[in-house]
Design a protein around this nucleic acid. Structure first.
Length: 334
DNA sequence: AAGGGGCGCAACCGCGCCCGG
DNA sequence: CCCGGGCGCGGTTGCGCCCCT
């Protein structure tokens, strides 16, 4: 059942590229382009390399205007926000960062950014434990703060809080200011105008849907792209198209529908459930979860029916509302 | 000074998608 | 419509460098 190899593995050089190979490849592509066929290209040049290896070398290293290392805070924020929104779709994320390659971003995320965030999470965990001991559990909605669910959500929420707080500090492309990052309702639950007004009436109870809908109608999405390189995902492209500013039924994106994982958002006000898909980072079967092992362990020990909200946050900032709503998403195995 | 472990990055691998014959 | 080749993507690996003990 195996597939045919793309090249003759026995006669192909592997491993690091030599400067001579780089020069050969770059000179040829500069003069003649790739010819639309990477597989045939190494033979034309006389390189004992797999075509895929040539392509990778060109895209990740030899291509003009490639930036390496030195990610800025803004780039961190964009990567983080997009990762939260769409998961590990590095090519789409890379499309938002001119000069960056998907491989670079992937490496950066795995080696630095993720650890940086999780490091902050651990720090926050310690701070929270101190804070909570002084708060005397004033929470209004969750009286069972000692439940496993709340412990679990606490860890997750803190991680998300860190992410969110970092974003709020950066006015450029913060999660809240960047509509392309907002989750969308499942199409089956697309709301009628009446339902929208009903939701609007519940703004304080259900800020996620209401705020997302309303904010999305007011922000010029083109500004967010800031003239960056084109988006290759239809979904993101649509989100960035200012002509689509207002989407009253904000149906769930096709891209995210491809994910297998469904989340339901517990609507506290009326007890109904709305189904969300929020990207594979919240899914039950993703082994490469971005959260820490601690969070993963706690998640596994949770009730199989829900991720209830830990009412850690009494702040009323909009960013915190969003966090609360993420945390309110209850997990259902489908 | 040496060695071992961690980290970062470049490159590889395999799979799914797309397109042309 | 089917099949095969090529492309693109995400996950993983391997290696070299650096730092700590």
């Amino acid at each position: 059942m195996g597939r045919a190899p793309c090249c003759d593995k026995a006669n192909v050089k592997k491993g690091p590229w030599s400067p001579e190979e780089d020069v050969k490849l770059k000179d040829y592509i500069d003069k003649y382009g790739t010819g639309g066929n990477w597989i045939a290209l190494p033979q034309k040049i006389g390189l004992k390399r797999c075509g895929k290896s040539c392509r990778l070398r060109w895209l990740n290293y030899l291509r003009p205007n490639i930036k390496h290392g030195g990610f800025s805070e803004e780039e961190d924020s964009i990567i983080l926000n997009l990762y939260i929104s769409i998961g590990s779709r590095w090519s789409i994320i890379a499309a938002q960062l001119p000069g960056r390659t998907d491989n670079d971003i992937k490496n950066y995320w795995n080696t630095k950014l993720k650890k940086k965030l999780l490091g902050r999470q651990k720090q926050m965990n310690r701070q929270d434990s101190i804070t909570h001991s002084n708060e005397n559990n004033i929470s209004s909605n969750n009286n069972n703060n000692k439940s496993p669910q709340n412990l679990s959500n606490s860890a997750l929420e803190r991680l998300q809080l860190h992410m969110q707080l970092q974003n709020l500090q950066s006015p450029f492309s913060s999660f809240y200011n960047n509509p392309i990052l907002w989750p969308k309702l499942h199409p089956l639950l697309q709301t009628t105008p009446d339902q929208n007004s009903k939701l609007a009436s519940q703004e304080t109870l259900h800020p996620l849907g209401v705020n997302f809908v309303h904010q999305k109608s007011h922000i010029n999405l083109a500004e967010i792209n800031n003239g960056a390189s084109p988006i290759y995902s239809d979904n993101v492209e649509q989100a960035l198209n200012p002509a689509n500013e207002f989407q009253p039924n904000f149906g769930f994106s096709q891209d995210l529908q491809l994910d297998n994982h469904n989340m339901d958002l517990m609507n506290r006000s009326c007890g109904s459930k709305e189904w969300f898909q929020v990207g594979n980072e919240f899914g039950p079967t993703n082994d490469s979860s971005w959260w820490s092992e601690e969070v993963e362990l706690e998640r596994k020990t949770m009730s199989s029916s829900s991720w209830g909200s830990a009412s850690v946050l009494d702040q009323t900032t909009e960013g915190v509302h969003i966090l609360q709503d993420y945390a309110q998403m209850s997990y259902h195995s489908v």
